[in-house]
Deep mutational scan, measured.
Amino acid sequence: MSIQHFRVALIPFFAAFCLPVFAHPETLVKVKDAEDQLGARVGYIELDLNSGKILESFRPEERFPMMSTFKVLLCGAVLSRVDAGQEQLGRRIHYSQNDLVEYSPVTEKHLTDGMTVRELCSAAITMSDNTAANLLLTTIGGPKELTAFLHNMGDHVTRLDRWEPELNEAIPNDERDTTMPAAMATTLRKLLTGELLTLASRQQLIDWMEADKVAGPLLRSALPAGWFIADKSGAGERGSRGIIAALGPDGKPSRIVVIYTTGSQATMDERNRQIAEIGASLIKHW
């Protein structure tokens, strides 16, 4: 067993022997301040990774656009098919120029040779490549099948209805392509620590998230040296922004954090800054 596999296998073990965790309302004060600064709703939840206990939450059962955070769930569904012998990570998928959609920095470079399922998941999570996500959605049967996968996990809230990039439209009061912070946090925890996926697939999923290259201005910008984070960000229309993450000190994750916002007129930089400040408060009061 590799060191990384050992780390993920012992996530519940280490967490069980940690000192009790206590909620700190100071972080919620910052979440509410972010709402004021952005002029928009902000949803927040913080779960203990081992027990699933909610440590703090704000608007945990209000719907927010998922945006690209759905790509972690998508690759979880792909990995479940791999575990069941219905898919192979090494299978190569070929596609054409007509398949390319807006923001496809990886797939646009491989029109000639195609990409493997493993490479597509890596591109979808680490670079948020939209064509990679659409190609992977095709392998599982489309958005409705991802929703069905989530329902089978016990998540009857999260739903995907459309493809990239239309799913980022974020129309107010439109339930399409949305989740709730509580539902997303619980589902992410199941994917990373539950028995739904094999140990190898859980490790692969967290490795992809740990290698995320496009979430630097968010929670990662607030992390002290030595902290662990595996995350996936999302951005959408109407001032929408979000991030889902597993993080913790001492090089291992111990909490799940989900943050979503929508309806702001603020710039992307300002949305990023507010999420980073929430992260800084979380870490300060850990």
Score class of each variant (00 low, 15 high):
Met1Glu: 01
Gln4Arg: 10
His5Thr: 12
Phe6Asp: 05
Arg7Cys: 08
Ala9Ser: 15
Leu10Pro: 08
Ile11Phe: 12
Ile11Gln: 05
Ile11Gly: 08
Pro12Leu: 12
Pro12His: 13
Pro12Gly: 12
Phe14Tyr: 09
Cys18Gly: 10
Cys18Ser: 11
Leu19Ile: 15
Pro20His: 10
Val21Ser: 10
Ala23Pro: 08
Ala23Gly: 13
Pro25Arg: 08
Leu28Asn: 07
Val31Ser: 03
Val31Arg: 01
Ala34His: 03
Glu35Val: 04
Asp36Val: 14
Asp36Leu: 15
Asp36Asn: 13
Gln37Pro: 04
Leu38Ser: 08
Leu38Val: 07
Leu38Ala: 07
Gly39Glu: 15
Val42Phe: 14
Gly43Ser: 06
Tyr44Gly: 02
Glu46Asp: 07
Glu46Trp: 04
Asp48Asn: 08
Leu49Ile: 14
Gly52Gln: 06
Gly52Phe: 05
Lys53Thr: 14
Lys53Cys: 08
Lys53Pro: 03
Lys53Trp: 09
Ile54Val: 15
Leu55Gln: 08
Leu55Cys: 08
Leu55Asn: 07
Glu56Gln: 11
Ser57Leu: 09
Phe58Lys: 07
Phe58Gly: 04
Pro60His: 12
Glu61Trp: 12
Arg63Gly: 04
Arg63Cys: 07
Arg63Asp: 03
Phe64Val: 04
Phe64Thr: 01
Met66Tyr: 04
Thr69Tyr: 03
Leu73His: 07
Leu73Trp: 03
Leu73Lys: 01
Leu74Thr: 06
Ala77Gly: 08
Val78Ser: 03
Val78Cys: 05
Val78Gly: 01
Leu79Pro: 00
Ser80Ala: 11
Arg81Ile: 06
Val82Asn: 06
Val82Ser: 08
Ala84Gln: 14
Ala84Ile: 12
Ala84Phe: 09
Glu87Ser: 06
Arg91Met: 06
Arg91Asn: 08
Arg91Cys: 04
Arg92Pro: 08
Ile93Asn: 03
Ile93Asp: 02
His94Met: 14
Tyr95Trp: 10
Ser96Met: 10
Tyr103Cys: 05
Tyr103Trp: 15
Pro105Asn: 05
Thr107Val: 08
Thr107Ser: 11
Glu108Ala: 11
Glu108Arg: 11
Leu111Phe: 09
Thr112Lys: 15
Gly114Ser: 05
Met115Ser: 04
Val117His: 03
Arg118Tyr: 15
Glu119Tyr: 03
Glu119Asn: 08
Ser122Met: 15
Ala123Asn: 05
Ala123Cys: 08
Ala124Gly: 07
Ala124Cys: 08
Ala124Lys: 00
Met127Val: 13
Ser128Cys: 00
Thr131Glu: 03
Ala132Thr: 02
Asn134Thr: 04
Asn134Asp: 06
Leu135Glu: 06
Leu136Asn: 01
Leu136His: 01
Leu136Ala: 06
Leu137Glu: 04
Thr139Leu: 15
Gly142Thr: 07
Lys144Glu: 15
Lys144Asn: 14
Glu145Val: 12
Glu145Arg: 14
Leu146Cys: 05
Leu150Ala: 08
Met153Tyr: 08
Asp155Tyr: 01
Asp155Gln: 02
Asp155Ala: 01
His156Pro: 10
Val157Pro: 02
Val157Arg: 12
Thr158Ile: 02
Thr158Pro: 00
Leu160Ala: 11
Asp161Arg: 02
Asp161Thr: 06
Trp163Thr: 10
Pro165Val: 09
Leu167Asp: 03
Leu167Cys: 12
Ala170Asn: 09
Ala170Glu: 06
Ile171Asn: 15
Ile171Thr: 14
Ile171Ser: 14
Asp174Lys: 03
Asp177Cys: 03
Thr179Pro: 00
Met180Thr: 14
Ala182Trp: 13
Ala182Lys: 14
Ala183Thr: 12
Met184Cys: 06
Met184Val: 09
Ala185Tyr: 00
Ala185Gly: 13
Thr186Tyr: 13
Thr187Gln: 05
Leu188His: 04
Leu191Asn: 02
Leu191Asp: 00
Glu195Leu: 04
Glu195Asp: 14
Leu196Phe: 12
Leu196Arg: 15
Leu196His: 15
Leu197Arg: 05
Leu199His: 13
Ala200His: 15
Ser201Asn: 12
Gln203Phe: 08
Gln204Thr: 14
Ala211Val: 08
Val214His: 06
Ala215Leu: 02
Gly216Asp: 08
Gly216Thr: 09
Pro217Asn: 12
Pro217Cys: 07
Pro217Met: 14
Pro217Glu: 10
Pro217Gly: 09
Leu219Asp: 04
Ser221Leu: 10
Ser221Glu: 10
Ala222Arg: 15
Ala222Ser: 14
Gly226Asn: 12
Phe228Tyr: 14
Phe228Met: 10
Ile229Gly: 02
Ala230Tyr: 03
Asp231Val: 04
Ser233Tyr: 01
Ser233Ile: 00
Gly234Thr: 00
Gly234Tyr: 02
Ala235Leu: 05
Ala235Arg: 02
Arg238Leu: 10
Arg238Val: 09
Ser240Lys: 01
Ser240Asn: 07
Arg241Phe: 02
Ile244Arg: 00
Ile244Met: 08
Ala245Asn: 01
Gly248Ser: 03
Gly251Ala: 12
Lys252Ser: 13
Pro253Asp: 07
Pro253Asn: 09
Ser254Phe: 08
Ser254Ile: 10
Arg255Ile: 06
Arg255Gly: 02
Ile256Trp: 01
Val257Tyr: 05
Ile259Arg: 00
Tyr260Gly: 00
Thr261Asn: 03
Thr261Ile: 12
Thr262Arg: 08
Thr262Cys: 10
Gln265Arg: 13
Gln265Met: 12
Asp269Lys: 12
Asp269Gln: 12
Glu270Val: 13
Arg271Pro: 05
Arg271Glu: 05
Asn272Asp: 09
Asn272Trp: 01
Arg273Ile: 10
Gln274Ser: 10
Gln274Thr: 15
Ala276His: 14
Ala276Asp: 05
Glu277Phe: 08
Glu277Pro: 02
Glu277Val: 12
Gly279Ala: 10
Ser281Cys: 12
Ser281Gln: 14
Leu282Gly: 03
Ile283Phe: 11
Lys284Leu: 13
Lys284Ala: 13
His285Gln: 10
